[in-house]
Design a protein around this nucleic acid. Sequence first.
DNA 1: CGCCAAGTTGATTGGCATCAAGAAATGTGG
DNA 2: CCACATTTCTTGATGCCAATCAACTTGGCG
Lengths: 245, 245
Amino acid sequence: MHENDESPLTRKLAAFVALSDAELSVLERLHQRRRSFKVGTDLVHQGQSDRAAYILSEGWVCSYKIQPDGTRQIVDFQIPGDFLGLRSVLLRTSDHSFEPVVDIRAAEVLAADLLEAFAQTPRLATAILWAASRDEAMVVEHLVGLGRRDADARMAHFLLELGSRLALVGMGGRAGYDCPLTQYHLADALGLSAVHVNRVLRQLRERGLVTFRNGRVTFDDYAALIDLADFDPAYLDQSGPLLKW
Amino acid sequence: MHENDESPLTRKLAAFVALSDAELSVLERLHQRRRSFKVGTDLVHQGQSDRAAYILSEGWVCSYKIQPDGTRQIVDFQIPGDFLGLRSVLLRTSDHSFEPVVDIRAAEVLAADLLEAFAQTPRLATAILWAASRDEAMVVEHLVGLGRRDADARMAHFLLELGSRLALVGMGGRAGYDCPLTQYHLADALGLSAVHVNRVLRQLRERGLVTFRNGRVTFDDYAALIDLADFDPAYLDQSGPLLKW
DNA sequence: CGCCAAGTTGATTGGCATCAAGAAATGTGG
DNA sequence: CCACATTTCTTGATGCCAATCAACTTGGCG
């Protein structure tokens, strides 16, 4: 597909375990069934229906819950290399829905294939479970942000986290990254109103910290932003744990 | 220990799968190494240290994260029958700390024992993973509450959720339940100030919905409370999924 | 009996939502 | 390629929810 056939997931996992050729080819085989989804077509991932997971290879997705009163809370965003609905393959739980933020391409993974891959290559299984556990840690961090950070710090923390995640799959760095999210997405994720998101972004820009504009996030003062957000990327990188295996 | 030797965990799992005698005895064996912890003695569960999990059999625990600015966000409470640090056994992640709310009694479970139990009784493994997935769903629901519910609804939802969880292990019902939490605990869990927690509780009491007093939660108008909280216990019960196995 | 944690209540402040209205960007069909 | 429609973004004005500050009360306990 691309010049090198390295998928974002491969790239992400490789950052934490050195995968053998055999493991790489098993991983590759998981990417067989490619599918596309357009914005607007909800990936209805409601429990009972299908028991497939996806590996996102291109584009962004958000997972969310709708409240009875109509408001929406975005639980997390998925970027290339992330799993969609991994849990609902292994167990039969799927408490939230998925919606593409932009047109996406993803590989469908059947439960059987995944379990077989796990059986064949335990190290790969460990790596994937590590990724899943990292996702959980992000949800927890998100919860902490909603509970105990004000709007500025929340936004700063969010933009930094996204930057770190994207850097892992080669889609961003200290300078910034391309970001297809609208201010409404930010609002629904951060528990703010869209109007206030706009004000917060303006303020961060005017303070010379970060610029969110035209689908691009630019870090103007990385260090100061980290300071404002009290950002500690330990929960993302966890560098070390897997290397020992 | 008690009149019948049924542990809270057994009781909880039994609500979702009918466990065979063999499975029950394996479960029993996991409860061998009993330990006690007193209030104040933090269960330092910081990643690297020990790789044991606990099954809580008596008392309450909270899991939390401390922010650099000193504020605390409680991620969840554990009640009898719940696991502590299950994830950190399987993976080496432990992003938050545990602290007893009252003196507790718990069974220590070594990674090896757990894995062996899983190998022996797949159905038990499924049941335990179901419980873990339920925990995750609760964290997500908590996140939604922080992002999109006002103080009243948040409190109401929290008290209802706790009631449902306790009912599952026979420690409460529609009438109410004993609750050792302080208003500070509620504040740290709900992302509110302790002062405001007090006001919200008073208001709920005066509206005839629920009374939180002297370590006891009393539901004065269950239906109205559910209505206020938009409480849908689907994410807790998930009745059905496991029964099919 | 006196101490300390937990709970209670009032007064004041401030962060963020809401309402409202317009400007810019993006998309769409003719 | 333009006219028009629909998002998306932007900014101001106003009000409310919940934080903060400050006392005071209550209850448990050595």
